[in-house]
Design a binder for these strands. Sequence first.
DNA 1: GCCCAGGGAATCG
DNA 2: CGATTCCATGGG
Length: 274
Amino acid sequence: MELISVKNDTVMSGFGGINLPLTLDCGQAFRWKETEKGKFTGISKGYETVISSDGETITFHNTSKEEAELIWADYFDTVTDYPSVIKKLSEDEKVAFAVQQYGIIRILNQDPWETLCSFIISACNNIPRIKGIVERLCTGFGEERKYGFTFPSAELLAAKTAEDLAFLRSGYRAPYIIDAARKVASGEIDLEKIKKMDEKSAEKELMKISGVGKKVADCTMLFSLGFGDTYPVDRHIARANALLYPDGLPDCFNGHKGLAQQYIFHYQRTENPI
DNA sequence: GCCCAGGGAATCG
DNA sequence: CGATTCCATGGG
């Protein structure tokens, strides 16, 4: 990875083969917006940027080299050697086909609280509606910035009640959001500490929150806590497992099951819908 | 009206 | 343990 300043922009190299639109909209993140053709606006951890990609580099528009290095390099998982990981995962022919069709998807290192909250909202819901609820949560309680709103803090939401969230139209998930906010804000659940736990302990700890079962815990771990070897099983993946891997997952997934899951998830939804 | 959506909790046996 | 049922909301 290398950073180059070009006027007010920062160009980050090392993204050969990336499918940026799919990486931002494959169901792991819910807040990136294509504000003009090929340009995506996003906010994470209170920082905002506009990005585009030529398939080799990512350009962070109006973003300093320092901020790209401190915030966005980690967000886009620049420490993982994707060509090498994908070569191994491609020993499985279904993943090989998916990589050939869709290009490189990256697992994003998102803000843990935003990710936890977003996947609590995702329960028995569809992606467009998840996006709508998250959007209303941000415009209702977040701080306004140049391009949009920040994700509201756990501390702020901990002081609200489920009734205060009625305008989200999140249904039975509202009390779950409040419970998560209170446990995170009070420190009863420490998301940064969970990063250092082993997989089983991390999962168990997250499942102390009402509305968080194994699947929501696994998504939070994979998309924001650095657990790249977890394989969240939702209804699509359960279907794909039964159909494509009746005898269990291939050994070549081991070590990077999270990325494999993203390919199978997208493969199942596009090539093999119900 | 029906079925479905990146599930989870409560309540059975 | 596993299987059922209920939980809001909205699109097709």
